[in-house]
């Protein structure tokens, strides 16, 4: 996978986030403050604008630019968290021009660790980590078995979607939903839902 593959991923994320913007905002209205879809849409729109001005030389440089733009433009908790994830992903990939599924899996693991540290969230807290962590495991396992990118990304996307769905019965322990206590039960976490979209976009691009 080269820079153009990851550019296509960012384009697909931007498209999906815009299409699902209202659903994400509605999930956030139930247990947060009703702006997750709008914030991510604004962030990825800014990412597209940044990429229109410069073409990064490597997948790593591209993802660092994505992360930095999200940190600068989104605000809230999701800006620093997603921004840090993409930055760490890019930094771990370094300046290699080509990335294998195994290398991407290792970099995504580093990205999830960075998100865990920044947000002090663990699996089961009802956050984006509940979608990210199983996706990283599924991707790592598929890559270790020598799966092709399309299969590995499909496994990761499915694990993220299952992880997001599994946040419904959880009581939130981090973020704004935690203020609701037991009333946060019964709703899908918006951050886990957007993580599933981002990995779903990876599957879409990997299948092309």
């Amino acid at each position: 996978m080269d820079t153009s593959f990851f550019l296509a991923w960012v384009d697909e994320i931007t498209r999906v986030v815009a299409a699902e913007r209202d659903r994400l905002t509605e999930l956030d209205a139930a247990i947060g403050d009703a702006d997750h879809g709008a914030n991510l849409d604004r962030g990825f729109t800014a990412v597209r604008a940044a990429l229109a001005e410069t073409t990064p030389a490597s997948p790593g440089a591209l993802l660092v630019l994505v992360g930095g733009t999200l940190i600068r433009k989104v605000g809230g908790a999701s800006g620093p968290l997603y921004g840090t994830a993409f930055r760490q992903l890019g930094k771990t990939l370094g300046d290699a021009g080509e990335v294998s599924p195994a290398e991407f899996a290792a970099a995504l693991e580093a990205a999830v660790d960075a998100v865990r540290r920044l947000g002090s969230a663990a699996e089961g807290d009802k956050t984006m980590v509940d979608a990210l962590a199983p996706a990283v495991r599924a991707l790592g396992a598929a890559a270790a078995e020598g799966a092709k990118a399309a299969e590995a990304f499909d496994a990761a996307a499915r694990a993220a979607e299952e992880g997001a769905a599994a946040t419904v019965p959880l009581q939130a322990r981090k973020g704004r939903a935690s203020y609701l206590g037991p009333r946060s039960v019964g709703h899908e976490d918006p951050g886990a839902a957007s993580t599933a979209l981002i990995l779903g976009a990876l599957r879409t691009v990997g299948a092309r």
Partner: peptide, 11 residues
């Protein structure tokens, strides 16, 4: 001031 109900960005 950030966006409505959204914290400001570091910049």
């Amino acid at each position: 001031p950030g966006e409505i109900f959204t914290s400001p960005v570091p910049d």
